[in-house]
Amino acid sequence: MFLINCPYCGERDQSEFSAGGEAHIVRPKQPTELSDDQWAEFLFMRKNIKGVQLERWNHAHGCRKWFNMVRNTSDDKIHAVYKMGEKPPIK
């Protein structure tokens, strides 16, 4: 059970959060101009890294805000959290 530092509320138990998968996958601004393959790339393709990964999390049972996390998926170490729209801190 992680202890997650919500960028808005501070340290909270993992049970207050929900995970939202890989971060920084931007929804295309003009989807209609994309080919099937390009759209599929956005829709389906995820890296699923073993190691340091950028992820989206939501403080679902707290402030309801989404934020990003730098987490190592092999040892669960959380290296940083940062707000939506911010750049990931350099690894």
Partner: peptide, 13 residues
């Protein structure tokens, strides 16, 4: 609700 919040906070702020 959380899906809509997600879009508002991340795609369409």
């Amino acid at each position: 609700l959380s899906k809509l919040e997600d879009y508002l906070q991340t795609e369409w702020p």
